[in-house]
Structure formats: structure tokens, C-alpha cells
Design a protein around this nucleic acid. Structure first.
Lengths: 140, 140
DNA sequence: CTTTGTGCAAACGATTTGCAGGATG
DNA sequence: CATCCTGCAAATCGTTTGCACAAAG
């Protein structure tokens, strides 16, 4: 990872008044480097691959801090486990019904939805689309 | 509940080769009668309000049977708990960020999305929209 | 009667929490 | 140095499972 992106991670943490600790840094940098929306278990395995960086409890607390700071979001597309995503810009998801893989779908893939067609009384603030299907790895 | 709808529940269960037991009947009839996507806990409280009808383990097993039979679906919009919905026709959801209430949004509320705009390789089969916002009970 | 469902309690797995020591700003 | 973070282990909470008994077809 380049010095520039290292700084970017530190900047991001500092700008949200988060103390920069090795564990927090590692969690956020790792999430930024991937787009597969890992579970806590996958995150831990990856972080501690070479040598122990963080405990499980700390990953949970780091994720909570990052989430409250708006740097990370939780993705609920599977029963039982939460997945995490450092892409906090609005976007959609594709979920493979075969292997469970989750993939981002760019926001402008679909035309904007007309939220004014919701029943009166509801005040929409955001929306996202989840597409279910089969990914190429599972189909071929 | 009218005799006719009673029969409808029995028919639905029988047509899916599910044995008609009081517990299963109660779970499915209860889900059919509401649109708030209850959790197992809420379902249990409601079922056993007057006198005990079903144990927790049986509600779980009934839901699994109903789900496998295609009469009920699981809705994941909240961390930690699964919610259940007897509306298995395609539809969208609105989730109140304040109180957590979940409400169905009719399928034809939104124009159809052009799934051919997904990247090549993905084979979409279905999609749904989740709208986040504030419901009238929370806003007023 | 044969098969499947129910209820209880124990088992599980993901996440949370309490607390003592350690690192950050 | 005052505050906040980390790691460990125990606690929690939703859900699943094993098993003996009961009910459904």
C-alpha cells in the first residue's frame, strides 16, 4: 500500500475523531482494499494471516466505531451473519443464490426510482436495490 | 376468522403436503392476518396470548416447513433477527429508520428496472427494492 | 400403524460486555 | 496523565438440535 493511501486511512480516522490504533487501521484498510463484503470471521482470518494483529472483540468494536463514524456500513443479505462494506456511497447489490457471493452494483446502473409514488405519509430518505441471481463463477 | 379462510389455510397446507397441526395452522394463519413482518418472538407472544398454543422450537420448525413449502418468506432488514412474511408475491419494502417498522410496498409502485444493464456474466432472477425513511407514526 | 410433529432442554454460533492492563493524544 | 482501546473470558441472544412422547393420515 502506498504512502499516500496510508495517509488517507489515517486522515479518515482522524477526521472522524477516531484514535488511530493499529487494529482500527488494519480493519479499515483491509475493508477498503476489498469489495467482497467480508464477515467478521473472514476479516479476522485475513488480518491475522501472517501474525496476530487483532482479537475478535476488537474487530467488533472497531467496526462499531467505524460504522458510527460513517466510514463503514453493515450489509444484511444473509441470515445469521453481518457483512461489512467500506463503500458508503449509495449503491446496489447482487447476491449469488448459489455461492452467496455479494457484489456491488454501481448506483447509475439503474434509472432513478420515483419515490413520490410511495403512499402519502412515508418520508423516504434513501433506497437500494438487491438483485438475486447466479454469478458467472457458479453458472459456468 | 371466517370458515372460508379457515379452509384456505388448510388447503394451502395440504396442497404442499404439510400435515395440518394446530401449531402450524396457527403460525400460518397469524402471518396471513398481519403485514408487519413479525419476529419469532412477536409471533410467539401473539399466538400464546390467551392460552399456550405452541412452543418456541415448534414455531421455528413450522416456519421452516412453511418456508420450504413456499408459503412464507424470511425478511432480513434488521441485524440479529429474522422476520417473516406470508406475502410471497414479489414486492418491495419500506423500513422506518426511527422505529424499525417494516411495511410492504406494492410491486407496481415502481417502474420495472432494466436488469440487462448489469455486467455481463451475472444472471439475474429477481430483485427487490428497500426504501429507508421515516414513517408517519414517527414523523408526526 | 407408520410417519411426522411437538415440547423440553441442552447445544450452538454470532455478537456483546466487564474488566484489568496498555496505548493514544 | 486523562482518556480511550485492547484482549480475554464470560455472558447474551437468536436459532438449532436430540430425544421421548403425542398426534396426523
Amino acid at each position: 500500500m502506498s504512502k499516500q493511501s496510508v495517509d488517507a486511512v489515517v486522515q479518515a480516522l482522524k477526521s472522524r475523531a477516531l484514535r488511530v490504533t493499529p487494529q482500527r487501521y488494519a480493519v479499515y484498510a483491509n475493508l477498503l482494499s476489498r469489495t467482497d463484503h467480508p464477515t467478521v470471521e473472514q476479516l479476522l482470518n485475513d488480518l491475522n494471516r501472517d501474525f496476530p494483529i487483532s482479537s475478535q472483540a476488537t474487530v467488533y468494536s472497531s467496526l462499531q466505531a467505524l460504522r458510527e463514524a460513517g466510514l463503514v456500513r453493515e450489509v444484511l443479505l444473509e441470515e445469521g451473519v453481518s457483512r461489512y462494506d467500506a463503500n458508503v456511497d449509495p449503491h446496489h447489490h447482487f447476491r449469488c443464490q448459489q455461492c452467496g457471493a455479494i457484489e456491488d452494483v454501481a448506483w447509475d446502473t439503474f434509472q432513478a426510482l420515483d419515490l413520490s409514488r410511495l403512499r402519502p405519509g412515508l418520508q423516504p430518505q434513501a433506497y437500494e436495490v438487491t438483485v438475486y441471481g447466479v454469478c458467472d463463477r457458479c453458472h459456468n
